[in-house]
């Protein structure tokens, strides 16, 4: 079976089981949708990084600045050269989101535990409620790498150039039906639909039933075979707030070796509220 393009970034549960006590060079990080899930029990050596209360700026709609990120790492005993292994709930959505954010802050060695929290729990492996304490790390703040992040103006330019877009949300969100449900005004966007021309490739096509990633052959068949994408394509992925699309970003970039994939973290909660931008409703036009 062909290896993934960057096989080192994906570790399995057994690898974590074997290396989890090497806390002076490895830090396991849990990142979940629910901010309290870690507190219910986590891999004993794991620390928590919350996508919202830790990584997002408390006032501006953006991520924290590089100094705050360095502090966040140091408090968790993460230094510049620490191997950081992410895992989480929901098939690793938030683990991939945190991985993407750490890459944006140019952390060198990031990995994902294949199968996430569920796979660990399913095997009845040890969990712990106590929060482990580690000696403070030493972290040098670095300017963000924006080559993996797309802003709305870049999405517009990309659209005008005919660049490829992938919408990874559910069918209802993609077609715009979901905002039409009566009595539920709180979807966070004033308009429904998708960015014109965006391919609809839901995030879960990359995942097996047990939450692990499909093989390279299977993934190539889907993204390259069925949807006609090529590893040299300039691609922007998006969803509702950028979490599910970071999973697809991870798959394309690290498992398939695509060279230029950006995550549009503003995603539909920004696009669906922008004045004057083009929107397409219904099924894909092509």
């Amino acid at each position: 079976m062909a290896e993934y393009a960057h096989p080192e970034v994906l570790v399995d549960v057994e690898w974590v089981l074997e290396h989890r006590k090497e806390v002076d060079r490895i830090r396991i990080v849990e990142s979940d949708e629910d901010v309290l899930l870690y507190d219910m029990g986590h891999i004993p050596e794991a620390v928590k990084v919350d996508w919202q209360t830790d990584l997002q700026h408390p006032v501006i709609r953006d991520y924290i600045d590089k100094e705050a990120f360095a502090r966040l790492c140091e408090e968790r005993g993460i230094s510049d050269d620490t191997t950081v292994v992410f895992y989480g709930d929901k098939n690793n959505w938030w683990a991939c989101y945190a991985f993407w954010a750490f890459k944006m802050y140019r952390h060198a060695d990031c990995r994902i535990m294949n199968g996430g929290r569920q796979k660990w729990l399913n095997q009845n492996l040890p969990v712990e409620k106590a929060v482990p304490q580690y000696p403070r790390g030493r972290y040098r703040p670095r300017d963000r790498d924006l080559s993996i992040r797309a802003f709305r103006d870049q999405v517009l330019e990309h659209l005008e150039r005919g660049g490829k877009l992938i919408d990874v949300r559910t069918k209802g969100e993609y077609t715009g039906e979901l905002l039409h449900m009566p009595d539920y005004p709180q979807e966070g966007a004033l308009r429904g639909g998708h960015i014109p021309g965006a391919l609809h490739i839901p995030w879960q096509v990359a995942i097996r039933d047990d939450g692990t990633f499909k093989s390279r052959e299977e993934l190539e068949e889907i993204y390259i075979g069925q949807h006609g994408l090529s590893p040299d394509d300039d691609i922007i992925v998006y969803c509702r707030i950028g979490e599910r699309s970071s999973l697809t970003w991870f798959v394309l970039t690290y498992l398939l070796g695509f060279k230029r994939v950006r995550n549009y973290d503003g995603s539909w909660t920004e696009w669906g509220n922008l004045v004057g931008v083009p929107i397409e409703k219904g099924e894909a036009s092509s």
């Binding site: 979940d32 949708e33 629910d34 901010v35 309290l36 899930l37 219910m40």
Partner: peptide, 8 residues
């Protein structure tokens, strides 16, 4: 069960 915040 994986949503303790909502449960709370």
């Amino acid at each position: 069960p994986e949503a303790p915040t909502v449960q709370g």
